[in-house]
Design a protein around this nucleic acid. Structure first.
Lengths: 343, 343
DNA sequence: TTGAAAGCGCTAACAA
DNA sequence: TTGTTAGCGCTTTCAA
């Protein structure tokens, strides 16, 4: 018994006394169909409650009109906003989205990629896990010419695209700002140097030190997973140091906020004794006291640009052969680093 | 030219000199296939790099093994955690996930549902938008017997299931706690009374007042969208009141935190002058000074239970005909309401 | 400008 | 226990 809710092009064709192929063409505004016919088809389809069957179509066309997204974690304001940006674009063009989390581990990442490969997504948007060392798990995809666009945490890869901000410059600017506020012994709380974002921020920081005649010491770098816990631990290390820093540049807000909380608990004044800056401009940066100096990361735009780029690749509408897009960031100075006047 | 990466069951069958249907059965451990044959099939499939083609299979079986998720917004720790919980389960059973955001508006929600309907998801997990008034947009789904499980923001609906916490009780408990701390004039910052979560929390609050001989006045209820902005506005109203409250129960942490920040700016002491409690136990509740008393919402569990329930429905493995599951919550008392000893 | 027909890869009813 | 066969609904080549 045919389910009434499953109207096919055959049903529409029969109702109009034309052929299924004409209906198929009429439905997608194929130029070879007379306007009048096309309108009749579309009207009838609407009336009958016709819905295209995606599987039949995918099976035939070998395209799924679905794109896969792999992110380290979904639980930051930053990532949620990127996803919103991606959705804005993909929804507009009728693409579905399959979102998966690598949980910051390459093991999960491999399995996500493989699942998405099996789902035959048309393309992929990826931000790499904390500990991913190579792109071998993408080789299946790439050899099938499935386009991949990396964003935020990107990697060099033949034929891939990436969307980023200038992390080096942002790191440079925020460190310079700390220096301008009188900091002379600035610590950096960084992430895995495998990830461009952390590597670049760290190098920006080092360059800023060098350009202002300050020396970098190994003691001034702590590498961690940049979560709440590692922020606390970093603060504890700092408290144990005999020669404490007078400024801290953390590679994300979560860590910066955790550090501020711990330092305050220990009676250290922020920013007077130690100034602290973060990265990302999460909402939490405006709750912590003092409000956190940070880098505004244009998350929505990153998502929109990454998605648009991918769709352009999929539809061969890319005008140029771009391999990297750099979006503008912005330093936001708040109380946690403002010491001018106090010195 | 056949793409080498598209190995079909026909290729496997030919290689083994058996029929495609045997391969199809062997691949999914069909009981009618001899073990030895099955093993040969699976070995050969693996060797040849065979991957099941989901569309062909969906087309044939009329099942997509994909479930749709509609949430108001993705940008809270709470929602991200629920999604993680959902993923934990769906991944395990080989289901894909299509996630979409209603942006808190019923207009978007209608379009999300329609897109998911068109994608022919096997089932749906939904938390309702702020202003959804009826479930008409689900009627297509429901008449097709596509199961829907609501979580957090749920609605009564013939044949649907819901997963919630006892919001009434949580509201009651947290209000009672405020009263036990000496609060006598407690304000409630609530959300739309269309949503069970806000309606129930409000009623729990009112009941607690009544049970402790306190009177509820309309002036003590502010209904808003419960975001950062409405928190600030609520604080401003409070500051303008001649007879200010000595306690505030906000229906989420975002609002509670915004209120605390504004009150502090105005020189009001929290909790001494006004005690403040929130709801959800977002990470921000441990950053704000003083740390926020709140309700721990078992987000991961909610997600896991909702997803399991849906899969049970899909596979007819549900043991009982459950219509509602209530998960345990927990009040977390922190400094923002602790006034004992100060009075 | 339209139609006929083949086939995308898989599944399952039926036959053997 | 295995094979045969007829589609699932759509797209597209080729023919008219």
């Amino acid at each position: 018994m045919k389910n009434k809710s499953e109207v096919t092009i055959y049903d529409v064709a029969k109702a109009l006394n034309i052929s299924p192929s004409t209906v198929s063409r009429g439905l997608k505004d194929h130029p070879h169909i007379r306007r009048e016919t096309r309108e009749r088809i579309q009207a009838m389809a609407a009336e009958m409650g016709y819905q295209r069957n995606k599987f039949a179509s995918s099976l035939r066309k070998k395209r799924t009109e679905t794109i896969g997204v792999v992110v380290p974690r979904l639980n930051s304001y930053f990532m949620a906003t990127v996803i919103s940006g991606i959705e804005n674009i993909t929804n507009k063009y009728g693409y579905g989205l399959i979102i998966s989390q690598s949980q910051e581990s390459v093991r999960h990442e491999v399995s996500c990629i493989s699942t998405l490969y099996n789902s035959r997504v048309d393309g992929l948007l990826v931000s790499l896990a904390y500990d991913t060392e190579n792109l071998n798990h993408f080789s299946n995809l790439l050899s099938k010419d499935t386009p991949v666009v990396f964003f935020d945490r990107v990697a060099e890869c033949q034929g891939c695209m990436s969307v980023v901000i200038d992390n080096f410059r942002a790191g440079y600017e925020i460190t310079s700002h700390l220096i301008s506020q009188g900091c002379r012994r600035i610590m950096h709380l960084g992430g895995s140097m495998l990830r461009n974002v952390y590597f670049d921020r760290f190098n920006g920081y080092k360059q800023a030190l060098a350009d202002h005649g300050l020396e970098f010491e190994n003691e001034l770098l702590i590498v961690s997973e940049l979560n709440n816990k590692s922020g606390k631990e970093a603060a504890e290390s700092i408290l144990r140091m005999s020669n404490r820093p007078d400024g801290i540049f953390a590679a994300n807000d979560t860590t910066a906020v955790a550090v501020i909380c711990e330092l305050k608990k220990a009676g250290i004044k922020v920013p007077e004794e130690i100034a602290v800056a973060g990265f990302n401009n999460e909402p939490i940066s405006q709750v912590v006291q003092p409000n956190l100096t940070t880098v505004d990361y244009p998350a929505m735009e990153i998502g929109e640009i990454a998605a648009s780029s991918l769709l352009n690749k999929l539809n061969n509408t890319e005008k140029f052969n771009v391999s990297k897009i750099v979006v503008k960031h912005r330093i936001i100075v708040r109380e946690s680093t403002l010491r001018t006047g106090n010195h």
